[in-house]
Simulated scan of single mutants.
Amino acid sequence: MSIMLELAVLGFLYDEQLHGYELRKRIAALAGHVRPIADGTLYPLLKRMERAGLLVRELQPGQAAAPRHMLALTADGRAALLDRLRAPDELDITDENRWFALLAFLRHLQDPTAQAAVLRRRLDFLTQPASFFWEGDRPLRAADFDDPFRQGLFRIATATTRTELTWLRETLTSLKG
Rank of each mutant, 00 (worst) to 15 (best):
D89I: 07
T163W: 06
L73R: 05
H33V: 09
S174I: 03
L103S: 09
P148K: 13
Q128P: 08
L140Y: 00
V118H: 00
R141C: 01
S131R: 06
E58F: 01
H19I: 13
A72W: 03
D15K: 12
P148Q: 04
G152N: 09
E22K: 12
A130W: 10
D95Q: 09
F132L: 12
D92V: 10
S131E: 01
P61H: 15
K176I: 01
M1Q: 00
I156Y: 01
A116G: 13
L42G: 01
L109A: 07
I156A: 03
L175R: 04
Y14L: 00
L59D: 04
L126Q: 05
H69S: 15
L81Y: 07
E50P: 13
A157Q: 07
F125C: 11
L55Q: 10
F132S: 15
T173M: 00
L30D: 02
D137E: 15
M1L: 08
D83I: 11
G11C: 02
A116Y: 06
E135V: 12
L85Y: 04
K25W: 06
A142M: 06
V34S: 12
A79V: 08
E96Y: 07
A72R: 11
L106H: 00
P148C: 10
L30M: 13
L82G: 06
R107L: 08
F100M: 10
L140P: 13
R107G: 08
A142Y: 06
E164T: 11
E164A: 06
R138L: 11
Q17N: 07
